[in-house]
Design a protein around this nucleic acid. Structure first.
Lengths: 338, 338
DNA sequence: TTGAAAGCGCTAACAG
DNA sequence: CTGTTAGCGCTTTCAA
C-alpha cells in the first residue's frame, strides 16, 4: 500500500535514496548508516510492499514474456494438476519460447469472481480447467478481453483442448459387450465436470443401444478420491444382483474400488472386470493392474500452452479446437492376455 | 516487444487511440472502423504483446498484493506438487490475506539460472522446494534480495519449513527393532534431496546402533516413481539373503514395491513387512494397505505461505525455522492390529 | 552523501 | 472521432 514516496517522506529523504536503501544498495551508494536506518524503519512502520509491476516496468533488463495463467478449481481435482504441470514443465524445458506460469485458483462455478479475466491486468492469456456449466455461461456472456483456452470443455466461442469424452465412455461399453458381459455397473465421481458427464452419457447410451443391462442400482456415485471409490464399490457390492463388469470413471476411484473388491473376496477379473479412466501412473501397479482409458493429460497441457501462445501472438479471433484421442491400456483387470 | 507507441506510429494514430482499440473499447469510444482495422493490423504485424506490468501499474482498481513464487524442480518430483498446492489452496480459501501464486519451474542444481531471484522484479517472495546442495550453496553465497523460504531443507541463513528427516528414518529403525526384525532392507529414490538423504542416514545409523543388520545388498536405489519401486523390489528379491522388513523411502516407490512382492509370491506382512514414507492418499488403499510415515505436506505448505508473508511484511526479520512432526500411520503392511 | 528528474508502457481524462 | 497529457511506482543517471 505504502509507496516508496511515502517511505521517503517519512524518512525525510528523496525517493531515489529510499530506493537504494530498500534494495540493499545503500552501502554501495555510500548512504550513511543513520539514513539507512531511518529508511528501513519507515518502511517497516508503513508496511512497505514493493510494487513488482512498477519494478519490472522500470528495470531495463527484464524481457517482456507472455504471462500464462492456469485457472484451476479449488477442490478434489487439485490432485490432477500435477500431471498437467508435468506437461507444462516438459514444454517449458523443450521450447525456446519463454513464458511465465501463474496459478490462479478459483472456486468451481465462481469464475466470475476472477476480476483479472476482465481487466487483463495480470496475465496475457488463461488456460481454464474444470469450468462448470455456470462458468462457461459466464464466459460466453461476458466477452472476455484476455485470450482463453478451455481444457476439457467444448465451446463454440472459445478455443478448446479436449478429448471426445462421449466416445471414451462409449468405447468402454463396446469393450464390455465384446467381452460377453450382460450386466454392467458404473462408478461415477460427484463433480461438476463436462468431461465426466459426457463420459457417463457415452457409456450409458451405448450400453442401452447394445442391450447391455445397466441397472439403476449398479450406478453409484462417490467423492472424487480413492476413498470415494472404495465406498462406492462397497455400496455396489451390497446390491442383490452384481454386475460382471464395472466402469469406474476415474482411476483414483478405481484404485479404491479394487481394494473394496479385494476385501470382499471378489476376484478381479475372474468375478468382476474393472476398467478405469485416466491412466494415472500408479494404475500399472495396482493389484491387479488396472485396465484403463489413457487420457493424454501431458500432451493436452502442451497443446494448451501452444494454443494460448498462438492466440496471444496473432491476436487470432477464430477459436482453435484441438482434439486428442483416448485409447485403452489393457492390463489384468480387464482383457489382458499376458 | 513492440510497444503501443510503435503500433500507434505504424497505424498513424495516437497511443491513446491505439490503446482503446487494442482493449476492445474502439466502438465504445466511437473510433472509426477503418482506424480500428489499421490499428489491429499494425498490432498483428508487429506482434504486439501487452506489457502487463505497465497495464497493472496504471490500472487504478488493481490492489497491490504480494506475489509469491513457488520454485519447484522440473523432474519426477513434479508429482509431489499437488499435495503442496492443496495446502496452498486451502490457505487461499481460508485466509483473508490475499496473495498471488506464481509457479517457477527450475532445473535441479541450476537455481542460479533464475535471474528473478536476484532482480526481484517478478515476485515479492519465493518458496524454494527441492533445493540441492549446489542450489543451497548458491543461495548462501549470493545474498538474495527477495525473501526466501526453503521447503524441506535446513539452513542457518534462510527461513525453513521442514520435518526432522533424520528422526523419521531413525524411528523406522526403532520400529523394526521393536518388532523383532534382525535383518532389514531399504529402497531409496535416486534424487538429490536433503530430506531423503537425512531420512536414509537416520535409518542406517540407527539400524547400526541397534544392531539391526542392513546388508549392502539389501540397499537398493531406483527412480523416484512406482516403476522405480517395482524394479528396486525385484532387484532386492534376487538377493540370496532376504530381509524381513523393508523401509521404502517414498510411498510412490512403496506402491510399486508391493506389486513386485505380490507378483513374486512374497506375502506382506507375513514374509516381509513394508514401511513407506509420505502418507500419500492412495496408500490407504494399496494391497495390503501401507504402513507409512505421515509427512504433513499440506500443513507445511500453509506454513511456507505464512512464513513468506511474514518475511515480506516485516522485512529484515531473522530467519524463522518451522519444524513439523512426522508420525506413523499403522496399516496392514507393518504392525497393524486391525 | 543525497536530491532532482527522466522515463519504463500504458490508460483515461480532457480537449478539441 | 481522435490527439494530448498526466501520471501509476519505481530505478538510475546526473548534479550538487
Amino acid at each position: 500500500m505504502a509507496s516508496i514516496k511515502e517511505i521517503a517522506k517519512l524518512a525525510a529523504v528523496s525517493a531515489g535514496t529510499a530506493s537504494f536503501v530498500l534494495n540493499g544498495k545503500g552501502d554501495q551508494m555510500r548512504i550513511s548508516k543513520s539514513t539507512q536506518e531511518r529508511v528501513l524503519a519507515a518502511a517497516k512502520e508503513l508496511g512497505y510492499l514493493p510494487n513488482i509491476s512498477a519494478k519490472r516496468l522500470r528495470s531495463k533488463g527484464d524481457k517482456v514474456i507472455p504471462v500464462i495463467a492456469i485457472l484451476w478449481t479449488i477442490d478434489t481435482r487439485t490432485a490432477l494438476i500435477s500431471r498437467f504441470l508435468q506437461g507444462v514443465h516438459e514444454r517449458f524445458r523443450n521450447s525456446e519460447q519463454e513464458f511465465e506460469v501463474l496459478i490462479e485458483p478459483y472456486e468451481s462455478s465462481k469464475l466470475h469472481q476472477l476480476q483479472s479475466l476482465i481487466t487483463g491486468t495480470r496475465f496475457n492469456g488463461a488456460i481454464i480447467a474444470n469450468a462448470s456449466d455456470e462458468d462457461l455461461a459466464y464466459l460466453e456472456n461476458h466477452k472476455i478481453s484476455v485470450p482463453v483456452v478451455l481444457y476439457q470443455r467444448k465451446s463454440k466461442t472459445y478455443s478448446t483442448v479436449s478429448v471426445d469424452s462421449y466416445e471414451a465412455g462409449s468405447k468402454v461399453a463396446d469393450l464390455f459387450q465384446s467381452r460377453g458381459h450382460k450386466r454392467v455397473g458404473m462408478i461415477v465421481p460427484q463433480i461438476s465436470s463436462q468431461a465426466v458427464q459426457l463420459r457417463q452419457e457415452g457409456f450409458v447410451h451405448t450400453c442401452a443401444s447394445l442391450g447391455l443391462e445397466l441397472l439403476q442400482q449398479c450406478k453409484v456415485t462417490g467423492s472424487f478420491s480413492e476413498e470415494g471409490g472404495y465406498e462406492s464399490a462397497k455400496q455396489l457390492l451390497g446390491r442383490k444382483e452384481l454386475p460382471s463388469a464395472i466402469f469406474v470413471l476415474s482411476d483414483q476411484m478405481a484404485t479404491g474400488a479394487l481394494t473394496a473388491l479385494h476385501e470382499a473376496g471378489v476376484r478381479v477379473p475372474e468375478d468382476i472386470e474393472i476398467v478405469g479412466h485416466d491412466n494415472n501412473e500408479n494404475t500399472k501397479f495396482t493389484i491387479p493392474s488396472l485396465t484403463t482409458v489413457h487420457l493424454p493429460v501431458e500432451e493436452m497441457a502442451d497443446a494448451c500452452i501452444s494454443t494460448i501462445i498462438e492466440l496471444i501472438e496473432d491476436q487470432q479471433k477464430s477459436p482453435i479446437a484441438t482434439s486428442f484421442k483416448t485409447n485403452f491400456v489393457f492390463r489384468k483387470s480387464c482383457g489382458s492376455f499376458q
